[in-house]
Design a binder for these strands. Structure first.
Length: 869
RNA sequence: GCCGGGGUGGCGGAAUCGGUAGACGCAGCGGAUUCAAAAUCCGCCGCCGCAAGGUGUGAGGGUUCGAGUCCCUCUCCCGGCACCA
């Protein structure tokens, strides 16, 4: 065995060994339980970043651990290869999106392989390849036939200068990112997927996802947003006829407090009222400015204008003014809301601003309403009964809703209704680098889907990207075609699919990426039975991607291809990788950002940071916040540099040690140094042992001294701890800390006799295997040195020996009045009475009880005794 | 704005079911080794205090024998908001 730890050498050798023994290959086999471990596939953006490394190392730790439990593990990898950055790169560098993407994939694949991930690369898939997207198009045609895909108008961000549709990301402060022009909302025809048809199922089966973080389930639940309420109508006269203005409300109990109705700017009633009112028409026009993003709509100033129209209250016949409000969303509910300023914060602000009346209808009989205290009334169910509401007075929320709904139903002015916040998924994109939509527009036959034998509709790869308009719409060789039904000249659809579509089913295709006859086959049933065993990815995907994937799995189930409904049995949402930022402000007040690698941090005599300077000029820089690693803040650290310097194991160890997987991880250069130091220490200790001579590991406590027994207990406690941390808790930082503690204990125990030597052998073998999932290269190498001929990649995870764990005495803490005052060592089997007596007799108790009698003694077995005086 | 999450030493974090706050590591300080340095090894290390002790988990309040953990109010930070992926 080499005396020195040389990562580059042992990592190369370990990778060669795994390749030669096909250690990562996943074959369908029934002799052991399967474990499908999946990480969210990357977008091939160029180089691997720290977020990728973190994601894939977490996945690899779990994959390797489960292999050591004797499971049949599949860990695949692929490329989410369609998307906007390829088009942006094409604009900037004149490279084709396809070339750019494929080059990035080559580069990132090479980097991934250096990390020592146990991936079955034979299953690699790339979504921009026709072999992949042809099946997406095939499924599209099935869904189109079923009516689960349909066409309607949808709002997009329109850049009037570049004459192009912008993504929300490309709208900055209401302006186009390239042109700087004020962005407008524009309605264009688009294809939609009927995800709302599955709303009920997507909501109710969230309860079955017990392997998901509670917060993700809650976010999905709120996103789907089922609300039970009442759809009710305010009648109004138009052209001599009685029309109905419908609204949806979950607070029908406040109906008697309505003082106005507000409609969206796009509401037909607003358009009609604007015909003779230029100011209103101008206001509606103004509402069209700005982006379509929900966050922008919700944070803008609430504005409104009266339409001059009046409707009648459905129960009192009172005249109710109709307003246009920029905060009313056309796409939710009826595009109109009833306003109850006394009991809704937003209505209240609006009423105050425009001097509209406020009428309290919820409260308690003996309390009076004041404008200052309205928040107290709103939502306080304990006091909330109807007041000032005629026959409904005294009714509580649910009863009032019931009574009012019943009365409205008799008048045919209302009915109970369920509303969803979830809306259908618009999948059309006016972009080039995406999966072509397999539809042909025929003047005679309408929208006709492309037949199976003409699939895939290939995306041309040599294309001219200009940044204005859709490139495919400028390529007659692409869009000129004939109708599959009547054979007459027709025009091919030039929009492409939302890239979320590719990532909604790729996890199924890993089971059979080589099948060119069918989208999926029986191998999916094997690998996905009961769901993918572990899915790992960023928390930022908690809603959209995961919801779409759940939706698609059901679509594919209902197409008869699989039986699965929920794709991901267990979900681990990983935190972000963040790093400090450093900048200087130039004369124009613009920040110039410096990479942490270029900056030197000064500390005071106690190690507190006290300023930073730029290495090249020694002049100070401003220390900014700790933010997600990004190009814009120049605070990214390239993983490759660190792998070159320290080896993959050090990078893996640091990433797993610095924070638990679901928390954000702060990058630290000196922390990496510490991880490297630990691996060197492990290597050195093992080397010293191996030089003394490998031997048979001890298998019991026979012949051990007391301190050696303590060490052996610690060893077996550590085995239990690491099993729990890898398996149940998925918290790897504490597993590493436990092994560090064990090594510290080994160092402090006299192992010079023969029994000690055997115990050292037992401990080092276990340490190599316990660390193997996290640092596989060094784990592989050390295990083979300790046990010549042994292969850690095929070894079982150590198991604790119950005899080693047994303990005669335990230490209990003594508290007096809840304050820690001392401790007590007592036989492990001592009962409560004995513990109580021993505690009362202890020096600590005597001293702090001050001669007063004990009022109460609380004994927590194995933990503490609290004496209350 | 709405939905979700978080705030613990100089720093990353630990405390798993309400029971020893600060495991483990980093930084720092002191020492050994060395011609010297690097590396390594040993010791100290929340804050106040000479000590006894007091105090301490974003702020304020509450429940409890006992609260970082549960409840209420507030505050700051982060993620998502349907065309970034």
């Amino acid at each position: 065995m080499q005396e020195k730890y040389i990562p580059a050498e042992i990592e190369r050798a370990a990778r060669t060994h795994w390749q030669a023994t096909a250690a990562d290959r996943a074959l369908e086999a029934d002799d052991k339980p399967k474990y499908y471990c999946l990480c969210m596939f990357p977008y091939p953006s160029g180089k691997l970043h720290m977020g990728h490394v973190r994601n894939y190392v977490i996945g690899d730790v779990l994959a390797r651990y489960h292999r050591m439990l004797g499971e049949n593990v599949l860990q695949p990898m692929g490329w989410d290869a369609f998307g906007m950055p390829a088009e942006n790169a094409a604009l900037a560098n004149k490279a084709s999106p396809a070339d750019w993407t494929y080059q990035n994939i080559d580069c990132m694949k090479q980097q991934l392989q250096l990390l020592g991930l146990s991936i079955d690369w034979r299953r690699e898939l790339t979504t921009c390849r026709p072999e992949y997207y042809r099946w997406e198009q095939w499924l599209f045609t099935r869904l189109f036939e079923k009516g689960l895909i349909y066409k309607k108008l949808g709002a997009v961000n329109w850049d009037p200068v570049d004459q192009t549709v912008l993504a929300n990301e490309q709208v900055i402060d209401g302006r186009g990112w390239r042109s700087g022009a004020l962005v407008e909302k524009r309605e264009i025809p688009m294809y939609y997927m009927k995800i709302t048809a599955y709303a009920e199922e997507l909501l109710s089966s969230l309860d079955t996802l017990t392997g998901w973080p509670e917060r993700v389930r809650l976010m999905q639940k709120n996103w789907i947003g089922k609300s039970v309420g009442v759809r009710l109508a305010f009648p109004f006269e138009q052209d001599g006829e009685t029309q109905k203005l419908w609204v949806f409300t979950t607070r029908a109990d406040t109906l008697m407090g309505v003082t106005f109705v507000a409609v969206a700017a796009e509401h037909p009633l607003a358009a009609r009222a604007a015909e003779n009112t230029p100011e209103l028409a101008a206001f509606i026009e103004e509402c069209k400015k700005g982006s379509v993003a929900e966050a922008d709509l919700a944070t803008m100033e609430k504005k409104g204008m009266p339409t001059g129209l009046f409707a009648r209250h459905p129960l009192t016949d009172e005249k109710i003014p109709v307003w246009v409000g920029n905060y009313v969303l056309m796409r939710y509910g009826e595009g109109a809301v009833m306003a109850v300023p006394a009991h809704d914060e937003r209505d209240f602000a609006f009423a105050q601003k425009y001097g509209l009346p406020i009428k309290q209808v919820i409260g308690a009989a003996n309390e009076t309403f004041s404008l200052d205290g309205w928040q107290e009334w709103y939502g306080d169910k304990s006091r909330a009964v109807c007041v000032n509401s005629g026959k409904y007075d005294g009714l509580a929320h649910a009863a009032a809703v019931e009574a009012i709904a019943a009365d409205l139903a008799k008048l045919e002015l209302g009915e109970r209704e369920v509303q969803w916040r979830l809306r259908d998924w618009g999948i059309s994109r006016q972009r080039y680098w995406g999966c072509p939509i397999p539809i042909v527009h025929c003047e005679q036959c309408g929208d006709v889907h492309v037949p199976d034998n003409e699939l895939p509709v290939r995306l041309p790869e040599n294309v001219d990207i200009t940044g204005a308009g859709s490139p495919l719409a400028k390529m007659p060789e692409f869009y000129e075609t004939t109708c599959p039904k009547c054979g007459k000249p027709a025009r091919r659809e030039t929009d492409t699919l939302d890239t979320f579509v590719e990532s909604s089913w790729y996890f199924l295709r890993y089971a059979c990426p080589d099948n060119d006859e069918a989208m999926l086959d029986t191998r999916v049933e094997y690998w996905c039975a009961g769901g993918i065993d572990q899915y790992i990815g960023g928390i930022e995907h908690a809603i959209l991607h995961l919801l779409y994937a759940r939706f698609f799995t059901r679509l594919i189930r209902d197409a008869g291809l699989i039986r699965l409904a929920e794709p991901f049995k267990n979900l681990l949402t990983q935190g972000m990788v963040v790093a400090p930022t450093f900048y200087r402000r130039d004369a124009n007040g613009k920040e110039q950002w410096f990479n942490p690698a270029e900056v030197e941090i000064k500390t005071d005599e106690r190690g507190r940071p006290a300023g930073a300077t730029l290495k090249v000029d020694g002049q100070p820089v401003v220390i900014g916040g700790i933010e997600k690693m990004s190009k814009s803040r120049n605070n990214g650290i390239a993983p490759q540099t660190l792998i070159d310097q320290y080896g993959a194991d050090t990078v893996r160890l640091f990433m797993m040690f610095a924070a638990p997987p679901d928390q954000s991880l702060e990058w630290s250069d000196v922390g990496v140094e510490g991880a490297y130091r630990f691996l060197r220490r492990v290597w050195k200790l093992a080397h010293t042992h191996v030089r003394r001579g490998v031997t048979a590991a001890s298998s019991g406590n026979a012949g051990l001294t007391e301190s050696q027994k303590d060490l052996r207990r610690k060893l077996h406690q550590t085995i239990n701890k690491t099993r729990d941390d890898y398996g149940r808790r998925q918290q790897f930082n504490t597993a590493i800390a436990a092994v560090m503690e064990l090594l510290n204990a080994c160092d402090k125990t006299d192992l010079s006799d023969a029994a000690g030597h055997a115990l050292a052998q037992e401990a080092f073998e276990a340490v190599a295997l316990m660390l193997f999932p996290i640092v596989p290269h060094i784990g592989q190498t050390l295990y083979a040195e300790l046990k010549p001929g042994a292969d850690a990649a095929r070894a079982a995870f150590p198991q604790a020996d119950p005899d080693a764990l047994a303990q005669d005495e335990v230490e209990l803490m003594i508290q007096v009045g809840g304050k820690l005052r001392g401790s007590l060592t007592i036989a492990a089997h001592a009962d409560k009475t004995a513990i109580e007596a021993a505690a009362l007799n202890s020096e600590a108790a005597q001293k702090f009880m001050d001669g007063k009698p004990a009022k109460k003694v609380v004994v927590v077995p194995g933990r503490l005794v609290n004496i209350v005086v």
